[in-house]
Amino acid sequence: MGLVKLPEEVDDDQAILLSDIVPTAYMAAENAQIKPGNTIAVFGLGPVGQFCVACAKLFDVGRIITIDTIPSRLEMARAQGAEVIDFNAEDPIAAIKELTSGIGVDRVIDAVGVDANRPHSGPAAKPAAKKHAKEKEKVAPEANPKDGNWEPGDAPSIVLSWSVEAVAKAGTVSIIGVYSEVDSFPIGNAMEKNLTLTMGNCNHRRYIPHLLELVSSGSLNPAKILTQREPMTSVIEAYKAFDKRKPGWIKVKLEPAIETSLAA
């Protein structure tokens, strides 16, 4: 029952993205309770965040504001029609307030989770450093970074705080980022603002048939964000590049048969 048969017109580049990240992003957009014309903020522009932008459009969103710091990721969101904020250049909350006449956005999607990095330059750097000083050690006590790889995020709960600050009163915060051991959430501010909170892991099988229809009909082309193709022999190197968030490394597809095909 778990596997879903693919129609011929959906190729591997599209299909591999339906295994996890497109259904995940679609559920995040559905959970965000978007009403036609709403303004939404998406924190995090990795593969899931990029698809949150694409999926929010399927729910007739009016305006999309996105927050990240990696130029290639901001560029891809901008190419999708989103407004972009670099959190190392601007205070993202101040920027969102300015863009929404001080009101905040109707809905927020947190597509970051526990491996969040705080700003290290710009006006948001200092307060973030103070607030999230010892969080990393608490959340990932057994971290084992090597040569710049496998470094945990240095502000695990920062996007939870930003989300509650960025959203308008009576808005919705949809959390799709993974938060394993994090136990700090600004519940007081959320309560005072009458927020609705939605979250959870996706049951992908639940969404895949509908998403296949959208891909088959041309309403959604997930292959647009597939940026790297790597044979399995270099899989460890691909892990390292993706881990370092290298420029342009947004989603990696692995092609198991390539090396052996060439050798044969």
């Binding site: 993205l17 295994s19 990795g46 593969p47 899931v48 491996d115 394993s180 691909a238 597809k253």
Partner: peptide
């Protein structure tokens, strides 16, 4: 086809 996910990195 397969892929690398942010969840693997966590």
């Amino acid at each position: 086809a397969s892929a690398i996910c942010g969840t693997d990195l966590h």
